[in-house]
């Protein structure tokens, strides 16, 4: 279930940002790994070729081969550079998450908060013990998340009872669902299909079964579903 023959970075806009960051971390890790393993192999080899034993104890003399400042400097610079590079790149990626929504999809965050943005689907996600309710702008409530492909979707995530975490792992969406608080996240699903929605915060006995489906549909099929649900809701309201 929920597996794709696609590049995982092409499943959504947030997945692309996530995989870019992952690629950067991997590059840093490979560079540091090569340095460490080269040292592990070369240092014993070089020292084993020397005739004189470096570590031979000579009373009153500190062995000069040990603890050279240059080696220390190289190690400190490597560690500091990797820390700074990872920090900067992570910071940029976090900023990119907000900026992409504004720049690429022309979503005005302020207008959105006032509830006026066009072309954006705002889904309220309510976690409870143990399941999810998805409330659409037209008032429809479902337990399966329907999403249109290629359109920005904003999730307003909250909880009814205890801490939960709303996540669609394949689309790289994850945010905590906390009672009395609304956390906001977004994504742009790009490939139609069925994805897993799961709780990522231990929330009780039923935590492991707090799973549902997110069905990403082609936009015209999503519109059909959305409109027919609205009509159904209206006719039900009329009857009551």
């Amino acid at each position: 279930m929920f597996h794709y023959p696609f590049n995982p970075a092409e499943l959504s806009e947030t997945a692309r940002i996530w995989w870019d960051l992952f690629g950067f971390y991997l590059t840093v890790a490979i560079i540091l790994g090569v340095v460490v393993y080269a040292g592990l192999v070369l240092i014993p080899w070089i020292y084993s070729r020397r005739r004189q034993a470096v570590d031979e104890i000579q009373p009153g003399v500190i062995p000069g081969e040990r603890g050279r400042m240059a080696y220390l400097a190289v190690i400190v610079i490597l560690i500091a550079a990797s820390f700074i590079a990872i920090f900067v790149e992570s910071y940029l990626a976090v900023n990119k998450l907000a900026a992409t929504l504004e720049e690429k999809y022309n979503v005005d965050i302020e207008e959105l908060q006032a509830g006026e943005a066009d072309g954006v689907l705002v889904v309220e996600v309510i976690g409870f013990q143990w399941g999810w309710t998805f409330r659409y702008p037209n008032g429809v409530e479902t337990d399966i998340l329907y999403l249109p492909a290629g359109r920005p979707v904003i999730f307003k995530v909250t909880s009814e009872d205890v801490f939960h975490a709303f996540s669609i792992p394949d689309l790289r969406v994850k945010v905590d669902a906390i009672p009395g608080q609304v956390n906001v996240t977004w994504t742009v699903p790009e490939k139609p299909g069925t994805y897993r929605v799961q709780c990522y915060e231990l929330c009780g006995v039923g935590h492991a079964e707090m799973i549902t489906k997110a069905i990403v549909l082609p936009p015209e099929v999503f519109d059909f579903w959305y409109e027919s649900q609205s009509e159904k809701l209206e006719s039900e309201g009329g009857e009551q």
């Binding site: 023959p5 490939k191 549909l217 099929v221 059909f224 579903w225 027919s228 009509e231 159904k232």
Partner: peptide, 15 residues
């Protein structure tokens, strides 16, 4: 209405 309007549809993804 038809069953499809209640959500009775699905998709075949051909790659």
């Amino acid at each position: 209405g038809t069953h499809a309007e209640e959500g009775m549809f699905n998709q075949v993804i051909v790659v």
